[in-house]
Design a protein around this nucleic acid. Structure first.
Length: 350
DNA sequence: ACTCTGCCTCAAGACGCC
DNA sequence: TTGAGGCAGAGT
DNA sequence: GGCGTCC
């Protein structure tokens, strides 16, 4: 997922990838693609080989994770906005299909596995986050007073739009294609304890690599993204080299008809452009994904409904009452201190 | 030598008790 | 599921 | 600090 090797490529330039502290994001609004987050949480909990379940046998790992994570972000002064996926675009069909097949395979392997490690491995690999689980997360998040945005299509592109329009400061995701969608800023490893928090600004990329935004999109397409096949023989180095030399994929492909260029690249790689290489559609999609208009979005952080959270987590999902109460106490404190700071700092700072 | 590719591995969340 | 990192192999 | 538990 994301853009293949983009991170690796960017490491070659100084100061494009910036290291950050968590305090740098205090008071900032950050968009978060929730499905990735939920996947991470559920998979992490599968370490032990089982999901957390309530007495009905329903999985509850996702709720615990979102609950804790949201509290810890508020404690750090961050205003999260959770963005949910809608219908996947047609362009993603082929990749989704292959993922389904992989999961199927993993499930089969899990059943066949005769040792514990293998069982856990394939158990993790066969994770599916259901619509129902995501709805439950949405309910909990709203009870916690955190705004939710339901994207018409991909959460990714919606997050990027929020950032582009200044409704949030940046997007917290591991998925580099947020930048290809035009988000001015990506934040990786936010809320990771082991890995350094990293911020990458689109502006910096364009400046250092000396590309315009459309050329950057073309570079990402050449590197490899979710929506388009790649040209065999073209990796990190050549992708950048070609965009610098020809300015665009379009011009590069056209130039292949000119005999001298053809010769030059034939001995570099005999591979030619694949059939149905839909780089044009892909570029268009990165430029104009289907997203909700920011004018229709009003992000508000309100006081959590503490009683309903307790009822939701404990009565409905069987969580330990005193633990949830402890969490709620933290939540209350975090909300109050955010609110206090808010009166001193103008709220429009994102 | 350079670069791309494929295949392998690993870790992933948060809390608390010892 | 994802990424990252390492390493071997192949093509140029 | 590492490891088991969380449901």
């Amino acid at each position: 997922m994301g853009i293949k090797n983009l991170h690796k490529l960017l490491r070659k330039w100084e100061n494009v990838i910036q290291e950050r502290n968590i305090q740098d994001f205090a008071g900032k609004k950050i968009a978060i693609d929730i499905s990735i987050l939920v996947y991470q949480i559920v998979i992490a909990i599968r370490n032990t080989g089982t999901d957390l379940v309530n007495t009905n046998g329903d999985i509850t790992s996702h709720l615990l994770g979102i609950f804790n994570k949201t509290i810890s972000m508020l404690e750090k002064g961050i205003y999260p906005v959770y963005v949910f996926d809608g219908k996947p675009p047609n362009m993603k069909n082929s990749i989704l299909k292959s993922r389904r097949e992989q999961r199927k395979k993993a499930k089969l392997k899990m059943k066949q596995a005769d040792n514990k490690e293998d069982k856990i491995k394939y158990f993790k690999r066969s994770v599916v986050v259901t619509k129902k689980q995501l709805n439950e997360c949405s309910q909990l998040i709203q009870l916690m007073g955190i705004p939710v945005v339901n994207a018409p299509q991909e959460a990714d592109s919606q997050c990027a739009q929020l950032a582009k329009d200044g409704l949030v400061y940046g997007v917290s995701t591991e998925d580099m294609d947020i930048l290809t969608f035009g988000s001015p800023r990506i934040i990786r490893n936010l809320s990771s304890k082991k890995k350094e928090i990293i911020q990458i600004d689109l502006e910096k990329i364009l400046k250092k690599l000396e590309l315009n935004y459309l050329q950057f999109i073309d570079l990402c397409i050449l590197l490899g993204c979710d929506y388009c096949t790649t040209i065999p023989g073209i990796g990190m180095k050549k992708a950048y080299q070609l965009i610098k030399q020809f300015g665009s994929i379009e011009t590069f492909i056209e130039s292949l008809n000119e005999t001298d260029i053809k010769k030059e690249y034939e001995n570099l790689n005999k591979s030619l452009v694949p059939e149905n290489y839909n780089y044009r559609n892909t570029s268009n999609y990165f430029q104009n994904p289907i997203v909700k208009d920011s004018k229709q979005i009003n992000l508000q952080w309100t006081e959590p409904d503490y009683d309903k959270i307790l009822e939701f987590m404990v009565s409905q999902f069987g969580f330990n009452k005193s633990k949830i109460q402890k969490g709620i106490a933290r939540l209350r404190r975090a909300y109050n201190s955010l609110n206090k700071n808010n009166k001193q700092i103008p709220h429009y700072i994102c």
